[in-house]
Design a protein around this nucleic acid. Sequence first.
DNA 1: CCGAATTAGTCTATGTTGTGGACTAAATAT
DNA 2: ATATTTAGTCCACAACATAGACTAATTCGG
Lengths: 390, 390
Amino acid sequence: MAQAVRHDAMRARNLALVLGELNSSGPLTRAALSEITGLTKTTVSKLVADLIEAGLVVETGAVRDGERGRPGMVVQISGAHIAAVGLEINVDYLAVRVVDLSRTVRLRRTQAVDNRRAQPGDVVGLLRDLALRAVDEAVEMGLSVVGGVLAVPGPVDLVRGAVHNAPNLGWRDVPVAALLELPFPVQVENEANLAALGELWFGCGLSDFLHVSGEIGIGAGLVVRGRLFQGSHGFAGELGHVVVSPEGPACRCGGKGCLEQYASQDALVSAAGGTLTSAGDISWILSRLEAGDTAAVAACERAGWALGVALSSAINLVDPDTIVLGGIYGPLFPWIGDAVAATLTSRLGQMRDVVPPVVVSRLGTEAAALGAAGQVIQRVIADPAALLQN
Amino acid sequence: MAQAVRHDAMRARNLALVLGELNSSGPLTRAALSEITGLTKTTVSKLVADLIEAGLVVETGAVRDGERGRPGMVVQISGAHIAAVGLEINVDYLAVRVVDLSRTVRLRRTQAVDNRRAQPGDVVGLLRDLALRAVDEAVEMGLSVVGGVLAVPGPVDLVRGAVHNAPNLGWRDVPVAALLELPFPVQVENEANLAALGELWFGCGLSDFLHVSGEIGIGAGLVVRGRLFQGSHGFAGELGHVVVSPEGPACRCGGKGCLEQYASQDALVSAAGGTLTSAGDISWILSRLEAGDTAAVAACERAGWALGVALSSAINLVDPDTIVLGGIYGPLFPWIGDAVAATLTSRLGQMRDVVPPVVVSRLGTEAAALGAAGQVIQRVIADPAALLQN
DNA sequence: CCGAATTAGTCTATGTTGTGGACTAAATAT
DNA sequence: ATATTTAGTCCACAACATAGACTAATTCGG
């Protein structure tokens, strides 16, 4: 619930206000910060001094803007000291990213594995090794890792830091956060949600969108005014099980005609005439598409139509500003994008002045791990006072 | 954006904290408030004194709880001075409700009209008369009306206070808030959203649910942790146009197989064998159901199935804790509730530990107008300092 | 090249607000 | 009747932001 506001909370909020403004509006002088925030120059100076002392902010020299008057000293968020790790466990790879406070990616490590049959303990062990080596390298760069977030493909128990149910990994109720035993706090989140946040902080610069993650399953993350919508239990965004056709093919969720039966990676491959062994990899279908194979093209159009049907329900329910297609839909966009947009226009165009545009994500498989690291950074920027106390 | 926190903002937040606690946890002594909020007894006393002076709170005598020690003076939110009006324009009635700060309904006025063919100006004029008479009566009760909210059946332009598009009224782009010319600020909101808020503040006491408003159209309002989810443009919750069957009957929205084609009032009546003239009134179908008419019962089961299909998409997307059926689904619940719940269980039961329970709303057509008034009250409780300044 | 104007940032006195502990008030327990 | 306990008030104090004076560093105009 809401908490009492004492003097320290007042200061904490103003620190966050200044740091947040530097984050969103880039390098600024104290005078500019004072004008934007409405705080006096005196107060801004004191707040900035605290942030500089904590290493969150640096002075980067005077502005020479040709204006008359004394030039201001520009301050900006410092990427030199604070860092966060983003971790990802997926079906066929593990990923670690280290991002500094200025949201610069300092380290990328990806390791191909096959987690379909692996034991959770083994997978977590591999990821820990990967993460610890990354942290060592970060320390050598002078960075201090303040926390991490782990992306997993499936619904998550946010409070326990456990994977609730990841069907593609074959995991059920695995307390990954505790198993990882890393030397900093680690939160666990759903991959699709984190991919949406990755798009928010490292992607196209939008702050209102529904990000669709096409993978083995299909997930989505909704960002409204720069914030992730999680629903009542944190399970929001299960686009893959939105109904496309109520008496369609049976789905592993128990339903019938869910979007996953039409537009998931496996559904696409088999619709294009591929075998089960060619599933798990998008390159096969991409090569067929580039060769102009009609079955593959038709499969994409049908998947695009189904995605459009599911998205029209989603748009009616959650009213996103833009649709961002990510995951496998990134490389497939040239063959799928138009079908999605056409379906949306035909189903929504009459009611709405503007049908949400459908755009492509350029982050690819990096989105979730970047979003994971970005979430830690976001927490620091939203509450720098928590860090100052140490 | 976030704003600078000065001393006055600190006080404003602590006032809101105390008033909010009185609102959620009922009558309390200053000592109890101090313990709950974490503020010192001194501070709580000063804040409570300000709230009493403003007439928002009253002392209601000492507690005799049999404990030793000096008994505390209980304070509680006062309904004696501040009031809000909830207004509703619907297809076949106008409604006004006056609610005081303690969320007691002080006045109910409903007027049956037929707005299908009426001009916006005439309808608004009637509503203004109704509202002004209600305000006069409120003043006689010693109440001062601080604001109002108007519920309209259709998407709304929140900033302009205009009806965007209300197909059942035949309205397009009508600036109702300005036309009303009432002596206090009036906001306009979608009927389905306000009905959900009505359920939150005057209904079953839940704070996490998806409220379905069955009327001529079908809308929904999502409440997460006591807050309404509105989406990026305020158009969220258009459950009526969620896809039930992608190649189903054409809908007036331009889509095919939308929920409204299966479960709206008109769809139910014609599925039960009624004529168009018997639409617009639920009593006809209710009498058939009570008489055990098989066509009517089958129509309800089919509507319940369709509602279940649409809700299973909604649950996958927004993860509500509970489904509350309101509007016409209230009286129809005995014939429709089981079909909805059964469809949800069969489509979601395998993936989820708990399928959101389906419950009935008991507010009926009052929900939206009460939610409208409640929203004004909510704003006062969330920021009492704004009122203290006058 | 020098003084006036202009803008950046710091310093000092002040005001508002919450805190902590002493104090008064009003009840129950012994 | 006295001790104990709890409620609420009073007062000195601390934390923080403010307002305006002050110093610093630049451009403009002669």
